[in-house]
């Protein structure tokens, strides 16, 4: 089933602001899709169109087949959870457990159910030990995991991460990616990962490159990175490992185009031992 479907969506911020015209994109249930693009390419607009923070001017955004309108906004928001960039600007309470409860309280779930949801959400992000902790004392990665738990407490079917790793250190980024990959693989959660870290896109099943509100490239991440000259024109760069492959090839060592460390090491070792 198609989880999120953009059908010929038009959207603009005022007259001469950002434009998106006749935009179409399908995300299948259970998929893990990376959306790449430089700052201002329209990838954050995409996230806001998916849960109705922004509404399309034309065309339609469909969530599990149902077009998003002002009327079913809150039903949609229960199904599409969005995690934003700055962990400090999305926690509403100073205590972890209270913050995770927020969404579930908003939709009027009974107390016992909220308790179960908190337990479920915190263990899904590996933060069950921090239930009574003070949010401001957590690390960036931990805060962002709490933010994810706060969204998971609503039991959404689609998780959208809008550059949620951009402000974290490498350890925090790894923590978030581990959580996201596990949710996708074990729980079958549909995930849209908006990012500008090429290394994160490599872990996804499909990558979509955006530029000026349009999809300019899409496919398996490895295929996309093979077309690295094209990537450069969209202000994106090759992951470093791709750069190394290119340079080795230019120096006369016929390694394949790969983004996998072990594969590259294998082929270098083989070529050197010939």
């Amino acid at each position: 089933m198609t989880a999120v479907s953009f059908k010929n969506v038009d959207f603009s911020y005022g007259e001469d602001g950002f434009h998106m015209k006749n935009f179409s994109l399908d995300v299948e249930e259970g998929e893990l899709v990376a959306v790449l693009g430089h700052n201002g390419s329209g990838k954050s607009t995409l996230a806001r169109l998916m849960n109705g923070l922004l509404l399309a001017d034309g065309g339609s955004v469909e969530i599990f087949g149902e077009p998003l309108t002002e009327k079913n906004l809150y039903d949609v928001r229960r199904q599409v959870g969005v995690v934003f960039q700055n962990p400090d600007n999305q926690t509403v309470s100073s205590i972890v457990e209270d913050d995770v409860a927020f969404g579930a309280e908003n939709v009027g779930l009974p107390r016992e159910e909220i308790g179960r949801r908190i337990e479920f959400a915190l263990s899904a992000v590996g933060m069950e030990k921090y239930r009574d902790a003070t949010v401001s004392r957590l690390s960036g990665g931990q805060k962002q995991r709490v933010a994810i738990a706060g969204v998971l407490a609503l039991k959404p079917r689609v998780l959208v991460l809008d550059e949620s790793t951009a402000m974290l250190d490498p350890r925090g980024r790894r923590e978030i990616m581990d959580v996201v990959l596990r949710l996708n693989r074990e729980e079958g959660m549909t995930v849209v990962l908006i990012t500008h870290f090429m290394e994160e896109a490599l872990l996804c099943g499909r990558a979509v490159v955006m530029n000026r509100g349009e999809i300019v490239m899409q496919g398996a991440p490895a295929e996309i990175f093979e077309r690295h000259e094209e990537l450069l024109t969209y202000n994106l760069t090759l992951p470093r490992i791709g750069e190394i492959c290119k340079k080795l090839q230019a120096g006369g060592l016929p390694v394949p185009d790969t983004l996998d460390i072990d594969l590259l090491a294998d082929s270098i070792a083989r070529l050197l031992n010939e």
Partner: peptide, 8 residues
């Protein structure tokens, strides 16, 4: 360079 895209 925190928070910038790869080109930035």
């Amino acid at each position: 360079a925190a928070g910038l895209d790869p080109l930035g």
